[in-house]
Simulated scan of single mutants.
Amino acid sequence: MQITSIAAIYFLFWVMSAFVMLPFGVRTADEAGVEKVPGQAESAPVNFRPGRLALRATIIAALLTALFVANYEYAWITIADIDVLPKPPGAAAD
């Protein structure tokens, strides 16, 4: 596998994990007991920490990319393993 392919897969895993991690650890003003600013949405986070989110996404994306590349190299799970469609009539058995 080329390094550019690995970088592209890492980027996709990073974006996916960042979006999945967004709602975790967020507290609203009511939950934190802080006074709201006039015009503030009730669901607005009190202390959004993008650095912490990026760090978590980086670690998760690195682990997922490593698993993906290892599966690519060692073929633990292949397309044949996840083929759930029935074989057409008259098809040769493998």
Rank of each mutant, 00 (worst) to 15 (best):
A93D: 12
A41D: 12
A80T: 10
A7R: 09
D94Y: 01
P89A: 10
Y74E: 08
P50A: 11
R52F: 13
M1D: 02
A92N: 05
I59K: 10
F68L: 05
R52V: 14
T78V: 13
N71I: 09
G25V: 04
M21N: 11
I77D: 10
V20G: 02
M16D: 00
F11I: 11
Q40Y: 01
K36Y: 00
A70Q: 08
V37S: 10
I6R: 13
G90E: 01
A80G: 13
A54Y: 00
A80N: 10
R56E: 09
D83E: 15
A57T: 11
F13S: 07
E35G: 08
K36T: 05
A80V: 06
K87T: 09
I3R: 14
A32K: 09
E31F: 00
A62C: 10
D30C: 00
K36D: 12
I77R: 07
T65N: 08
D83T: 12
F11W: 02
I9T: 12
Y10S: 09
S17N: 13
L85S: 14
D81Q: 06
P88T: 02
I60H: 05
M1I: 00
Q2N: 15
L63H: 01
W14V: 03
A70K: 03
M21P: 00
T58E: 00
M1T: 04
W14G: 08
A18R: 08
A61Y: 00
K36F: 01
P50T: 11
L12T: 09
E31Q: 15
A32H: 01
R49D: 14
R27G: 00
T28Y: 02
I60K: 03
W76C: 07
I82V: 15
E35W: 01
A66R: 04
V26I: 14
R56T: 12
E35P: 07
M16W: 05
I60Q: 09
L22S: 07
T4Q: 08
M1S: 09
A80H: 12
L85A: 15
T78C: 12
P45W: 06
A66D: 03
G33R: 03
S17P: 02
A54C: 10
W14C: 08
Q2W: 05
A32C: 05
L55E: 09
P38G: 05
F13K: 00
F48Q: 11
P50Q: 12
I6E: 07
T58C: 05
T65K: 07
T28C: 06
V26H: 03
A93I: 13
L22M: 15
Q2R: 15
W76R: 11
I59E: 04
F68M: 10
R52M: 14
P86G: 08
I59P: 05
L64C: 14
